[in-house]
Amino acid sequence: GDLHWVVKPEEKMKFDAIFESLGPSGGILTGDKVKPVLLNSKLPVDILGRVWELSDIDRDGMLDRDEFSVAMYLVYRALEGEPVPMSLPPPLVPPSKR
């Protein structure tokens, strides 16, 4: 569809830079590489667990570039005081996963 992804291009560039800095292997980051980054946000672990549930769209225990952007988006919004949704709203689903 022509639904715009809620992650803005300038945010995506920032998240992609963080993604690259974590040393993705084959274009994906494993859970143990992403976990410390999310823990760094100081958000409660149950919130981070939900962020992971929502962002690991194919549930393979790893995040690709777009899934990682969803995770970072949710973490930044949560830090601004917005609640993390219980399920992923359509505007948050990366165009590559629709």
Binding site: L38, E53, D56
Partner: peptide, 13 residues
């Protein structure tokens, strides 16, 4: 929440 016998893919659980 996860299938019996399956392992969690969530590093926070």
């Amino acid at each position: 929440q996860y299938p019996a016998g399956g392992s969690s893919t969530n590093p926070f659980l």
